[in-house]
Design a protein around this nucleic acid. Sequence first.
RNA 1: GGAGAAGUACCCAAGUGGCUGAAGGGGCGCCCCUGCUAAGGGUGUAGGUCGCGUGAGCGGCGCGAGGGUUCAAAUCCCUCCUUCUCCGCCA
Length: 424
Amino acid sequence: MLDVKLLRSQFDEVKEKLSQRNEDITALDQFGELDEKRRETIQAVEELKSRRNKVSQEISQMKRDKKDATDVIEEMQKVAADIKKLDEQLREVDEQLNHLLLTIPNIPHDSAPIGSDEEDNEEVRKWGEVRSFPFENKPHWELATDLDILDFERASKVTGSRFVFYKGLGARLERALINFMMDLHQDEHEYTEILPPYMVNRDSMTGTGQLPKFEEDAFKIREEDYFLIPTAEVPVTNLHRDEIMSMDDLPKTYTAYSACFRSEAGSAGRDTRGLIRQHQFNKVELVRFVKPEESYQQLELLTGHAEKILQLLQLPYRVLNMCTGDLGFTAAKKYDIEVWIPSNETYREISSCSNFESFQARRANIRFKRDTKAKAEYVHTLNGSGLAIGRTVAAILENYQQEDGSIEIPEVLRPYMGGKETIK
RNA sequence: GGAGAAGUACCCAAGUGGCUGAAGGGGCGCCCCUGCUAAGGGUGUAGGUCGCGUGAGCGGCGCGAGGGUUCAAAUCCCUCCUUCUCCGCCA
């Protein structure tokens, strides 16, 4: 959510910035009118309420003095009716304005390259050597099916498309990665470990920006107003919804493992095979609540924490600075980390690290005070995958495959795999 | 799922229609005393948010949330949420 005062005072500049995005912002044009109508109504109704309060005092005094107040009460009945009418008008305008504000995306940061789609994303750096195979390499779903460590077919029988069973060392590998990442972030990167609920309520989904605009992307629980989380970002960021932190709390950092659920509405036919695009996948998430003046520096730090995982796993990757057209709804700046997937002969997203500035904090009302007397200010929130587990498995299977179809296990994972060196 | 109780400011807590922005504590700020790690006395402040105003300031809202009754609601009515206790069920 954007700052209303900023919209009032610098509407044209804000609109200009927002138009660099790949989003429809025509609704924004109603802002001025709604904002003005709202303020007019507030003034009118508050004047009446002020009068009501004053006269109520007088009535109270008259009653105590045993004087007759019938005339005044009669007059106040009319005022009360007017108040009721104006309150109703105000509620309507408030609702409209609020809905509008909730559907306007974040303002891109100046360091985000201006562009219209993924073509315009900027490569910031590249790490690792892309392996050249002296034999014909296979996609991960073939390797995994041959090794009997993933079962897509039965998953579609038991549930449906875009689900998978992990089996044997496949399941072990998934679990090893979760533990490896969680341990590293907790022990080396100083995040507090969280295991969150996998369902959240509507307020939480609104707080982080999934709602109201992207309801069709989420799985909804039928008989409750709950949603399956699309990422641990939602429960973890909302941990501190409607709270005021103190200066010493910042930066507050969490790492959370969770399953993630996405309807993938609109991506029918894309990545239909393999682990890349599932309705349910595992992810380790990093979340940081920080002081506004530090947030860009903190974004670099967080991105580095995600990169560290790939470095230790010896998987080649690149980092992209996402252009204004590809930023998504909530981010002011976003780095995507992409890992090399040999079967695709390209890099694929494995982590997305964003600075939301005060956009989520304003929606979720997460603030801090510089000292006890100070006015509460909005924190800046950041998060990033560290990393998506399923895609990491895909990358390991493909990058570590041997000519005989076996998989070498990355060294850092062996302690988590009972000391095994290969999957065969 | 059934029965009961409760939700008041940073915390505890009083308050059943008007004089309550809300007693009293604790805490916190300042001052004094004492002096050794903890204690005594005095005094002060009381959150947030919205609107108007250049500003001092003025005003609205606010006692879990949302509605309602009333000239007037922390106080009465309705719905919902959460917590606690008991019973049932259960990984």
